[in-house]
C-alpha cells in the first residue's frame, strides 16, 4: 500500500497484480493441538494441586506411571507409539511448510485491495451445469483437480459426437471465462456415447437447467 493512496477505481487495471495464493492459517490442526495440550496440562495441574493438599495421585496417573516403569523400551507398543509419533511429526512439518488452501481458487481481483476466492467444488458445479446445457449431453462429471486442470467426462446421448464435442468445448470455455479465475483451468474433455437404449426419451437439458436468479 502506498502512503498517499488515491481512491482506486476499476479503470486502472495496470495496478492489479496477479494474486498469489493465500496461505491457509492452519487453524484446524493448531486448534486440535492446543486443545489436547491444554487438556493434558489442566489434568496434570489439577492432580498436582490435589496431591499438594494430601490427596492420593489420580488412578490414571499411577497407572500410566506403572505402565511406563514396567514396559521395557524394547516392547512393540513403545516402538509402535514412537513410530506413530515420528510420522505425526513429519505430518505437522509438512502442514506447517506447505501453503494449503487447495480448495480455494483465487479469482482475478477487480482492484488491488480486493482478494477473492471461489471454492473448487463450486467451480466444478458451474462447469458441470454448463456441460449439461449443451444439446446432446445427458450426463456429465467434472473434476477440478489441482488448480490448473478440469477434467470433464460427458455422456452423449444423441447427435453427431464431433459436433457435440465442439459445442461442448465452446460452452465450457465460455463457462470457464465466467468463473473469473486468476488462472483459468485447462479443460480436458472425454466423451462417451450413451448405449443405444438411451436414444429415445431423454430430454436434452432437463437435469441441468439453470435456475433463474431471483430479483427481489
Amino acid at each position: 500500500m502506498s502512503t498517499a493512496p488515491e481512491p482506486e477505481s476499476p479503470e486502472n487495471p495496470a495496478r492489479v497484480r496477479t494474486p498469489h495464493r493465500a496461505w491457509s492459517a492452519r487453524r484446524g490442526p493448531a486448534a486440535v493441538l492446543a486443545l489436547l495440550g491444554s487438556a493434558a496440562c489442566g489434568m496434570l495441574l489439577y492432580d498436582q494441586v490435589a496431591m499438594g493438599y494430601g490427596h492420593p495421585a489420580a488412578p490414571w496417573r499411577t497407572h500410566t506411571k506403572d505402565w511406563l516403569a514396567d514396559t521395557p523400551g524394547t516392547s512393540g507398543w513403545v516402538i509402535g507409539a514412537a513410530v506413530i509419533l515420528a510420522v505425526l511429526g513429519v505430518y505437522l512439518m509438512v502442514i506447517a511448510l506447505t501453503p494449503g488452501g487447495r480448495r480455494r481458487l483465487p479469482m482475478a481481483p477487480p482492484a488491488p485491495s480486493v482478494r477473492a476466492v471461489l471454492d473448487r467444488a463450486s467451480a466444478a458445479a458451474l462447469l458441470r451445469e454448463a456441460a449439461l446445457r449443451t444439446p446432446g449431453v445427458t450426463a456429465a462429471r467434472v473434476r477440478v483437480r489441482g488448480r490448473r486442470r478440469a477434467r470433464v467426462r460427458a455422456t452423449v446421448a444423441y447427435g453427431d459426437v464431433t459436433a457435440v464435442r465442439a459445442a461442448l468445448h465452446e460452452e465450457l470455455l465460455a463457462a470457464t471465462d465466467r468463473l473469473g479465475l486468476a488462472h483459468p483451468p485447462r479443460i480436458r474433455l472425454r466423451l462417451t456415447a450413451a448405449p443405444a437404449l438411451a436414444l429415445h426419451g431423454n430430454e436434452p437439458d432437463a437435469p441441468g437447467a439453470p435456475t433463474e436468479p431471483e430479483a427481489r
Binding site: V83, L85, A86, V87, M93, L97
Partner: peptide, 23 residues
C-alpha cells in the same frame, strides 16, 4: 500457527525417532 506446528513437528519427529531407534 505455522511456526508452532513446525516446532512441535520437529520435536515429535526427533523424540519418536530416538525412542524407536533405541528400542
Amino acid at each position: 500457527n505455522r511456526t508452532l506446528l513446525a516446532l512441535l513437528g520437529i520435536a515429535g519427529l526427533a523424540a519418536g525417532c530416538w525412542v524407536a531407534v533405541a528400542g
